[in-house]
């Protein structure tokens, strides 16, 4: 027992000292359910994922739940990650974003604190005062109001292209085009 516990701790110490893993190395370790690899993953990426979650879910307690769920999902689904389709971080980021959007959806479906998530409020009141106004979300604010809006609907609210078209009263083709143009502009501000 003692052995096990010491071992458990050592692993954690070891990790903090290790150099950066490459994606393939990390992946091999993760797929073999290596605890150390998960620890490394958490150390290096939880902050990036957490800031993205907070950009969608401003409530800290809720964001904490979603972050935990995100890592649980990463652990369960690591074998379904396909390297040919993109980087590990992209995959994790999409999991975090999807879980955040699902959380918002189920929360508003359950009826509680529905008011918090009304688009106008989360854009104006909460954005200005908080730390989660960073990264992608901050970059969107350099765009025109129309571009900001379409990215907010698509990325931070999870509207499909059809839903955006409906919301804006335009065709799906046009919605797709506007979204792509806005994303091209957004990218310029990330550099």
């Amino acid at each position: 027992m003692l052995l096990f516990f010491v071992n458990f701790h050592n692993k954690h110490f070891l990790l903090n000292l290790t150099a950066k893993y490459s994606d393939p190395e990390l992946l091999t370790l993760l797929k073999s359910k290596n605890d150390a690899a998960f620890n490394y993953l958490y150390e290096h990426f939880s902050g990036g994922l957490y800031s993205t979650i907070l950009q969608i879910i401003p409530e800290r307690n809720d964001a904490n739940k979603v972050l935990q769920e995100t890592f649980l999902n990463i652990s369960y689904r690591i074998n379904s990650y396909d390297e040919s389709k993109g980087k590990l971080f992209t995959w994790m980021l999409n999991i975090a974003r999807n879980l955040s959007l699902n959380f918002l959806k189920s929360k508003s479906a359950n009826g509680y604190s529905a008011g918090i998530f009304k688009p106008e409020r989360s854009l104006t009141e909460t954005d200005n005062k908080s730390f989660y106004n960073s990264g992608l979300k901050k970059a969107t604010q350099q765009l025109t109001p129309e571009e900001t809006r379409i990215i907010d609907l698509a990325y931070f609210k999870g509207y499909t292209q059809e839903e955006i078209a409906k919301e804006k009263g335009i065709t799906v083709t046009l919605a797709k085009q506007e979204l792509r143009n806005a994303l091209i502009q957004l990218r310029a501000y990330l550099k």
């Binding site: 290096h44 800031s51 992209t90 990264g135 992608l136």
Partner: peptide, 12 residues
């Protein structure tokens, strides 16, 4: 995107 996210990381 990864760089942006990591640079803007919020410590949980």
């Amino acid at each position: 995107l990864e760089k942006t996210a990591v640079e803007n990381a919020v410590e949980p």
